[in-house]
Amino acid sequence: MAINLNLSAIAIAGQAAWRRAKPIVLRDVVLLPALGFLGIIILWWVVALLNHELMPTPAEAFVANLDYILNPFYQRGPGNLGIGWLLLASLKRVLWGFLLGAVVAIPLGFLIGMSKPAMLALNPLIQIFKPVSPLAWLPIALAIFNLADPSAIFVIFITSLWPTIINTALGVSSVSKDYLDVARVLEMNRWRRITKIILPASLPYIFTGLRISLGIAWLVIVAVEMLTGGIGIGFFVWDEWSRLNLSSVFLAVLVIGVTGLLLDFALGKIQELVTHRPRTAN
Protein backbone atom coordinates (compact mmCIF):
# COMPACT_ATOMS: atom_id res chain seq x y z
CA MET A 1 0.00 0.00 0.00
CA ALA A 2 2.66 2.47 1.11
CA ILE A 3 4.83 1.33 -1.76
CA ASN A 4 1.98 1.87 -4.20
CA LEU A 5 1.43 5.37 -2.90
CA ASN A 6 5.12 6.10 -3.15
CA LEU A 7 5.27 4.83 -6.71
CA SER A 8 2.28 6.85 -7.84
CA ALA A 9 3.72 9.93 -6.13
CA ILE A 10 6.96 9.41 -7.99
CA ALA A 11 5.06 8.88 -11.25
CA ILE A 12 3.09 12.07 -10.79
CA ALA A 13 6.17 14.05 -9.80
CA GLY A 14 7.94 12.55 -12.78
CA GLN A 15 5.18 13.62 -15.15
CA ALA A 16 5.16 17.14 -13.79
CA ALA A 17 8.92 17.38 -14.10
CA TRP A 18 8.75 16.03 -17.64
CA ARG A 19 6.14 18.61 -18.64
CA ARG A 20 8.28 21.40 -17.29
CA ALA A 21 11.50 20.01 -18.70
CA LYS A 22 10.18 18.61 -22.01
CA PRO A 23 11.46 21.33 -24.38
CA ILE A 24 14.86 21.31 -22.69
CA VAL A 25 15.06 17.51 -22.63
CA LEU A 26 14.17 17.37 -26.30
CA ARG A 27 16.93 19.81 -27.11
CA ASP A 28 19.54 18.40 -24.70
CA VAL A 29 18.90 14.69 -25.20
CA VAL A 30 17.83 14.50 -28.84
CA LEU A 31 18.57 17.59 -30.86
CA LEU A 32 22.07 18.56 -29.84
CA PRO A 33 23.51 15.03 -29.74
CA ALA A 34 21.95 14.37 -33.17
CA LEU A 35 23.65 17.51 -34.42
CA GLY A 36 26.98 16.10 -33.23
CA PHE A 37 26.46 12.82 -35.10
CA LEU A 38 25.32 14.71 -38.18
CA GLY A 39 28.48 16.80 -38.08
CA ILE A 40 30.81 13.82 -37.95
CA ILE A 41 28.92 12.03 -40.77
CA ILE A 42 29.12 15.15 -42.96
CA LEU A 43 32.84 15.45 -42.24
CA TRP A 44 33.33 11.77 -43.16
CA TRP A 45 31.29 12.26 -46.33
CA VAL A 46 33.29 15.32 -47.38
CA VAL A 47 36.62 13.58 -46.76
CA ALA A 48 35.41 10.45 -48.61
CA LEU A 49 34.21 12.46 -51.59
CA LEU A 50 37.43 14.50 -51.77
CA ASN A 51 39.58 11.37 -51.71
CA HIS A 52 37.43 8.45 -52.70
CA GLU A 53 40.29 5.97 -52.92
CA LEU A 54 40.96 6.51 -49.23
CA MET A 55 37.58 5.50 -47.83
CA PRO A 56 33.95 4.77 -48.71
CA THR A 57 31.23 7.35 -48.09
CA PRO A 58 28.86 6.66 -45.18
CA ALA A 59 26.17 5.47 -47.57
CA GLU A 60 28.51 3.05 -49.30
CA ALA A 61 29.76 1.78 -45.97
CA PHE A 62 26.21 1.22 -44.81
CA VAL A 63 25.30 -0.76 -47.91
CA ALA A 64 28.50 -2.80 -47.69
CA ASN A 65 27.76 -3.63 -44.05
CA LEU A 66 24.11 -4.44 -44.53
CA ASP A 67 24.74 -8.18 -44.27
CA TYR A 68 26.63 -7.78 -40.97
CA ILE A 69 23.95 -5.50 -39.56
CA LEU A 70 20.98 -7.65 -40.58
CA ASN A 71 22.57 -10.98 -39.64
CA PRO A 72 24.79 -10.43 -36.63
CA PHE A 73 24.68 -14.11 -35.63
CA TYR A 74 25.33 -16.05 -38.82
CA GLN A 75 27.58 -19.09 -38.88
CA ARG A 76 28.98 -19.88 -42.31
CA GLY A 77 31.71 -22.33 -41.64
CA PRO A 78 34.65 -22.23 -39.24
CA GLY A 79 35.95 -18.73 -38.66
CA ASN A 80 33.25 -17.17 -40.76
CA LEU A 81 30.97 -15.83 -38.04
CA GLY A 82 28.60 -12.87 -37.68
CA ILE A 83 29.82 -9.78 -35.87
CA GLY A 84 27.60 -10.63 -32.90
CA TRP A 85 29.57 -13.86 -32.27
CA LEU A 86 32.84 -11.97 -32.53
CA LEU A 87 31.61 -9.42 -30.05
CA LEU A 88 30.50 -12.13 -27.62
CA ALA A 89 33.89 -13.84 -27.89
CA SER A 90 35.66 -10.57 -27.02
CA LEU A 91 33.23 -9.82 -24.22
CA LYS A 92 33.79 -13.27 -22.75
CA ARG A 93 37.56 -12.71 -22.59
CA VAL A 94 37.12 -9.25 -21.09
CA LEU A 95 34.65 -10.38 -18.46
CA TRP A 96 36.80 -13.36 -17.39
CA GLY A 97 39.92 -11.22 -17.11
CA PHE A 98 38.04 -8.42 -15.42
CA LEU A 99 36.33 -10.68 -12.89
CA LEU A 100 39.57 -12.48 -12.01
CA GLY A 101 41.21 -9.06 -11.70
CA ALA A 102 38.46 -7.79 -9.38
CA VAL A 103 38.68 -10.93 -7.22
CA VAL A 104 42.39 -10.30 -6.70
CA ALA A 105 42.40 -6.50 -6.71
CA ILE A 106 39.64 -5.76 -4.19
CA PRO A 107 41.18 -7.81 -1.33
CA LEU A 108 44.64 -6.45 -2.20
CA GLY A 109 43.24 -2.92 -2.13
CA PHE A 110 41.73 -3.63 1.30
CA LEU A 111 45.05 -4.92 2.55
CA ILE A 112 46.91 -1.86 1.30
CA GLY A 113 44.27 0.51 2.62
CA MET A 114 44.21 -1.04 6.09
CA SER A 115 47.82 -1.90 6.74
CA LYS A 116 50.74 0.48 6.53
CA PRO A 117 53.36 -2.28 6.08
CA ALA A 118 51.35 -3.80 3.22
CA MET A 119 51.10 -0.36 1.65
CA LEU A 120 54.84 0.21 1.93
CA ALA A 121 55.59 -3.23 0.50
CA LEU A 122 53.19 -3.12 -2.43
CA ASN A 123 53.05 0.52 -3.40
CA PRO A 124 56.40 0.59 -5.25
CA LEU A 125 55.40 -2.49 -7.28
CA ILE A 126 52.11 -0.90 -8.25
CA GLN A 127 53.75 2.39 -9.16
CA ILE A 128 56.18 0.56 -11.46
CA PHE A 129 53.68 -1.80 -13.10
CA LYS A 130 50.83 0.67 -13.47
CA PRO A 131 52.39 2.73 -16.32
CA VAL A 132 53.35 -0.39 -18.29
CA SER A 133 51.16 -0.95 -21.33
CA PRO A 134 49.25 -4.16 -20.64
CA LEU A 135 50.27 -5.36 -24.12
CA ALA A 136 53.83 -5.70 -22.86
CA TRP A 137 52.57 -8.60 -20.76
CA LEU A 138 51.33 -10.46 -23.82
CA PRO A 139 54.65 -12.16 -24.75
CA ILE A 140 55.10 -13.20 -21.14
CA ALA A 141 51.58 -14.57 -21.07
CA LEU A 142 52.12 -16.42 -24.36
CA ALA A 143 55.31 -17.92 -22.98
CA ILE A 144 53.47 -19.13 -19.90
CA PHE A 145 50.23 -20.40 -21.46
CA ASN A 146 51.28 -21.14 -25.02
CA LEU A 147 47.71 -20.46 -26.05
CA ALA A 148 46.05 -17.31 -27.37
CA ASP A 149 42.88 -17.33 -25.29
CA PRO A 150 44.30 -17.70 -21.77
CA SER A 151 47.00 -15.20 -22.71
CA ALA A 152 44.41 -12.61 -23.72
CA ILE A 153 42.51 -13.20 -20.50
CA PHE A 154 45.74 -12.87 -18.52
CA VAL A 155 46.51 -9.52 -20.14
CA ILE A 156 43.01 -8.26 -19.32
CA PHE A 157 43.48 -9.54 -15.78
CA ILE A 158 46.67 -7.50 -15.39
CA THR A 159 44.97 -4.48 -16.96
CA SER A 160 42.10 -4.67 -14.51
CA LEU A 161 44.27 -4.87 -11.42
CA TRP A 162 45.78 -1.44 -11.01
CA PRO A 163 42.84 0.99 -11.08
CA THR A 164 40.79 -1.30 -8.82
CA ILE A 165 43.63 -1.81 -6.33
CA ILE A 166 44.42 1.89 -6.17
CA ASN A 167 40.82 3.05 -5.82
CA THR A 168 39.93 0.36 -3.30
CA ALA A 169 42.95 1.27 -1.19
CA LEU A 170 42.02 4.93 -1.40
CA GLY A 171 38.42 4.20 -0.41
CA VAL A 172 39.41 1.97 2.49
CA SER A 173 41.97 4.42 3.85
CA SER A 174 39.62 7.39 3.58
CA VAL A 175 36.64 5.94 5.42
CA SER A 176 35.30 8.77 7.57
CA LYS A 177 36.65 8.76 11.11
CA ASP A 178 33.08 9.25 12.33
CA TYR A 179 32.06 5.87 10.89
CA LEU A 180 35.06 4.18 12.48
CA ASP A 181 34.25 5.83 15.80
CA VAL A 182 30.72 4.45 15.52
CA ALA A 183 32.23 0.99 15.00
CA ARG A 184 34.50 1.41 18.02
CA VAL A 185 31.76 2.69 20.31
CA LEU A 186 29.57 -0.25 19.24
CA GLU A 187 32.51 -2.56 20.07
CA MET A 188 32.56 -4.21 16.65
CA ASN A 189 35.28 -6.79 16.15
CA ARG A 190 37.64 -6.52 13.20
CA TRP A 191 35.61 -8.68 10.88
CA ARG A 192 32.32 -6.92 11.64
CA ARG A 193 34.07 -3.57 11.20
CA ILE A 194 35.25 -4.59 7.74
CA THR A 195 31.95 -6.03 6.56
CA LYS A 196 29.56 -3.59 8.23
CA ILE A 197 31.47 -0.30 7.98
CA ILE A 198 34.59 -0.25 5.81
CA LEU A 199 33.28 -2.27 2.86
CA PRO A 200 30.02 -0.36 2.39
CA ALA A 201 31.76 2.97 3.03
CA SER A 202 34.36 2.32 0.34
CA LEU A 203 32.03 0.73 -2.22
CA PRO A 204 31.71 3.95 -4.27
CA TYR A 205 35.50 4.06 -4.59
CA ILE A 206 35.70 0.37 -5.43
CA PHE A 207 33.15 0.84 -8.19
CA THR A 208 35.04 3.83 -9.54
CA GLY A 209 38.08 1.56 -9.77
CA LEU A 210 36.09 -1.25 -11.37
CA ARG A 211 34.63 1.08 -13.98
CA ILE A 212 38.03 2.48 -14.91
CA SER A 213 39.39 -1.09 -15.06
CA LEU A 214 36.58 -2.32 -17.28
CA GLY A 215 36.94 0.70 -19.56
CA ILE A 216 40.66 0.09 -20.05
CA ALA A 217 40.10 -3.66 -20.41
CA TRP A 218 37.72 -3.03 -23.28
CA LEU A 219 40.29 -0.73 -24.90
CA VAL A 220 43.02 -3.30 -24.51
CA ILE A 221 41.16 -6.39 -25.75
CA VAL A 222 40.94 -4.96 -29.28
CA ALA A 223 44.70 -4.51 -29.41
CA VAL A 224 45.34 -7.93 -27.82
CA GLU A 225 43.13 -9.70 -30.37
CA MET A 226 44.85 -7.91 -33.23
CA LEU A 227 48.06 -9.53 -32.03
CA THR A 228 46.75 -12.96 -31.05
CA GLY A 229 44.28 -13.48 -33.89
CA GLY A 230 41.40 -15.92 -33.48
CA ILE A 231 37.75 -15.06 -33.07
CA GLY A 232 37.03 -11.61 -31.73
CA ILE A 233 36.13 -8.08 -32.61
CA GLY A 234 39.75 -6.92 -32.43
CA PHE A 235 41.00 -9.48 -34.94
CA PHE A 236 38.00 -8.68 -37.13
CA VAL A 237 39.20 -5.06 -37.36
CA TRP A 238 42.69 -6.17 -38.33
CA ASP A 239 41.48 -8.85 -40.73
CA GLU A 240 39.12 -6.50 -42.57
CA TRP A 241 41.92 -3.93 -42.85
CA SER A 242 44.16 -6.58 -44.42
CA ARG A 243 41.43 -7.25 -46.94
CA LEU A 244 41.24 -3.49 -47.59
CA ASN A 245 37.64 -3.60 -46.43
CA LEU A 246 37.49 -0.27 -44.62
CA SER A 247 33.68 -0.23 -44.50
CA SER A 248 33.65 -3.09 -41.99
CA VAL A 249 36.32 -1.35 -39.93
CA PHE A 250 34.03 1.64 -39.60
CA LEU A 251 31.22 -0.64 -38.47
CA ALA A 252 33.52 -2.36 -35.97
CA VAL A 253 34.61 0.99 -34.52
CA LEU A 254 30.98 1.94 -33.95
CA VAL A 255 30.14 -1.44 -32.42
CA ILE A 256 33.17 -1.34 -30.11
CA GLY A 257 32.25 2.16 -28.97
CA VAL A 258 28.61 1.36 -28.25
CA THR A 259 29.57 -1.85 -26.43
CA GLY A 260 32.03 0.05 -24.24
CA LEU A 261 29.33 2.55 -23.39
CA LEU A 262 26.87 -0.21 -22.52
CA LEU A 263 29.45 -1.98 -20.33
CA ASP A 264 30.02 1.18 -18.31
CA PHE A 265 26.29 1.84 -18.09
CA ALA A 266 25.65 -1.70 -16.85
CA LEU A 267 28.34 -1.44 -14.20
CA GLY A 268 26.91 1.92 -13.13
CA LYS A 269 23.49 0.28 -12.71
CA ILE A 270 25.02 -2.52 -10.64
CA GLN A 271 26.73 0.14 -8.52
CA GLU A 272 23.39 1.84 -7.84
CA LEU A 273 21.84 -1.49 -6.88
CA VAL A 274 24.69 -2.52 -4.61
CA THR A 275 25.38 0.79 -2.85
CA HIS A 276 21.70 1.81 -2.50
CA ARG A 277 22.80 5.31 -3.41
CA PRO A 278 22.65 7.36 -6.58
CA ARG A 279 26.02 7.52 -8.28
CA THR A 280 26.40 11.24 -7.65
CA ALA A 281 26.25 10.78 -3.89
CA ASN A 282 29.90 9.92 -3.46
Binding site: Y179, V185, L186, R277, A281
Partner: peptide, 29 residues
Protein backbone atom coordinates in the same frame (compact mmCIF):
# COMPACT_ATOMS: atom_id res chain seq x y z
CA UNK B 1 40.43 2.11 28.77
CA UNK B 2 38.53 1.50 25.57
CA UNK B 3 35.26 2.47 23.89
CA UNK B 4 32.15 0.71 25.03
CA UNK B 5 28.45 0.77 24.45
CA UNK B 6 27.82 1.68 28.10
CA UNK B 7 28.95 5.19 27.07
CA UNK B 8 27.20 5.88 23.81
CA UNK B 9 28.26 8.89 21.75
CA UNK B 10 26.02 11.31 19.93
CA UNK B 11 28.18 12.86 17.26
CA UNK B 12 28.23 16.48 16.13
CA UNK B 13 27.99 15.39 12.51
CA UNK B 14 25.50 12.65 13.40
CA UNK B 15 27.76 9.69 12.57
CA UNK B 16 25.02 8.03 10.53
CA UNK B 17 25.95 5.44 7.94
CA UNK B 18 24.69 6.82 4.62
CA UNK B 19 24.20 3.41 3.00
CA UNK B 20 21.67 2.38 5.64
CA UNK B 21 18.15 3.71 6.11
CA UNK B 22 17.13 5.46 9.32
CA UNK B 23 15.69 2.18 10.62
CA UNK B 24 18.75 0.16 9.59
CA UNK B 25 21.09 2.64 11.28
CA UNK B 26 19.33 2.09 14.60
CA UNK B 27 19.01 -1.64 13.95
CA UNK B 28 22.76 -1.95 13.35
CA UNK B 29 23.49 -0.60 16.82
Amino acid sequence: RKPGSDRMMIFQHYGLLPWLTVRENIRLA
